[in-house]
Design a protein around this nucleic acid. Sequence first.
RNA 1: GUGGUCGUCGGUUUCUAUCGCUUCUAUUCUUGAGAUAGAAGAGGAAAGUCAGGGCAGCAUAGAGCACCAUACUUCCGAAAGGGAAGGACUCGUAAGGGUACAGAAAGUGCCACAGAAAAUUACCGCCUGUUCUUAGGAGCAGGUAAGGGUGAAAACGCGGGGUAAGAGCCCACGACGCGGGCUGGGAACAGUUGGCGGGGGUAAACCUUAUGGGCUGAAAGGCCAUGUACACCGGGGCGUUUGGAGAAAUCUAAAAUAAGGACUGCUCGUCCAAUCUCGGGGGGUAGGUCGUUUGAACCUGUUGGCAACAGCAGGUCUAGAUAAAUGAUGGAAGUUCCGGCUUGCCGGAAUAACAGGAUCCUGCUUACAAGACGACCAUUUGU
RNA 2: UCCCUGGUGGUGUAAUGGCAGCACAAUACACUUUGGUUGUAUUAGUCGAGGUUCGAGCCCUUGCUAGGGAA
Length: 137
Amino acid sequence: MSTQHPINRHTFRKAERLCSKKLITDVFEKGNSFYIKPFKTLWIDTPLLTSVPAQLLITVPKRYMRDSWQRNSIKRLIREAYRLNKDPFYSILQQKQKQCALAIVYTGRKIITAAEAESAIILILCRLSEEYEKITG
RNA sequence: GUGGUCGUCGGUUUCUAUCGCUUCUAUUCUUGAGAUAGAAGAGGAAAGUCAGGGCAGCAUAGAGCACCAUACUUCCGAAAGGGAAGGACUCGUAAGGGUACAGAAAGUGCCACAGAAAAUUACCGCCUGUUCUUAGGAGCAGGUAAGGGUGAAAACGCGGGGUAAGAGCCCACGACGCGGGCUGGGAACAGUUGGCGGGGGUAAACCUUAUGGGCUGAAAGGCCAUGUACACCGGGGCGUUUGGAGAAAUCUAAAAUAAGGACUGCUCGUCCAAUCUCGGGGGGUAGGUCGUUUGAACCUGUUGGCAACAGCAGGUCUAGAUAAAUGAUGGAAGUUCCGGCUUGCCGGAAUAACAGGAUCCUGCUUACAAGACGACCAUUUGU
RNA sequence: UCCCUGGUGGUGUAAUGGCAGCACAAUACACUUUGGUUGUAUUAGUCGAGGUUCGAGCCCUUGCUAGGGAA
């Protein structure tokens, strides 16, 4: 598996996105959650249909950001930050033989810069890694 | 030069480094939502969803009413609450701008406050007659719209005649409205001539006239796969009359009819079934694919037309995602601005506003940074 | 993507085209030793822009904004 997804390539393909309606409802209804600065994160430990370690869903509510171009740009920033920083989290998941469904919800009301997004995403991924350490003991 | 009016263009440009996204094509083998290479990849408004269509489904014997929309003329356009040119009115010194711009003389309603009165009106006043009288006047009956501080709006304006007092009551001139004739124009309309008339405003109040209008929207709808249950609840109903068979229960045939449903608001009318119909609710699925991008398409040239636009010729194929693709960080050039002066160099800053396709077109409306351009008007100064 | 509804003081709500009200809240005063209750007074408003009208919260156009629905 790891040969198909080399660590040194920071990709973010369709397989790594959360598209299944069932999984999405599971994440939002049964998932664990925590809050770091402008993002709310929901996650659940569940077997996925594909071979990737984790699937991610990015969401910006229409209630807070009215214009679609603003929502799109924030989603792009989050995706970029996740893509560049996901490797430590993936390696932990692969060690533990686990799969994870993730949802990141932006709860701010203004546009953030790329640097702010990246630091917050790094914090979120560290927190998730800790949670998995606790689960597996 | 200053101020202004109308309009057009513009919309992060080019090269490059690292990482990355979507679609298509080719190659490859480990046959996977793989790898490599190449190509393509958001807007003038993609927006608001305001108008009209294409397309799709449902409905459709027909008629009437209701409801909704539109409303100067001609032309363009598939159509349009669309556009062009023109007319009328209106705002502006002007260039120009705006107009739901049919009917108030078919009818109904409304017009607060103020005012005598807001549309067949008499409160004060004026005048006539009459009664009383303290001789100033008061009461009663009638005539009268010339005058009365109001109001958004006051019963055409002004002059003369007339009268008891007055009044378009009559006349001249003027304004307004409705017909007729003539001239110009394709028409709206304009000019002119003569006739008739007396009427407040309001139709983005009801309404009248003319014209038009089925309903629902890609979560429409078709196909494949997966999966299941019409189990449950509520309303209505499987009826009545006549004929035949039969002792009867009942069965059967044809016609009519009550209640119900359909014809998408109502009426007429037509049609509909008998473990049936209408509504609610539940179970299951939670995937793929078509629709889906070649079209009233775009670009260039040319012809016709004042213009909107149309014809002809040549060329082009130009996003198709689906929890939803264009991004992040650098470098160089270019562009713009600021400062300095050697006037074409140096240094610094910025590289943007509005904003992201989701079925597709035509319009309308709204938002919009730096900058560029054209036409015209007013005014000032100089020549 | 498509469709629908609303917007009135700080909050909740009324209002035929004709002076924009009511309740709660807030502030001040009175009452009370003080607070509460009660009473009196005050402040504060038609989402923005344009149009129709003598006159728009209401009618029309357009924008802004809030919310809802649709396998």
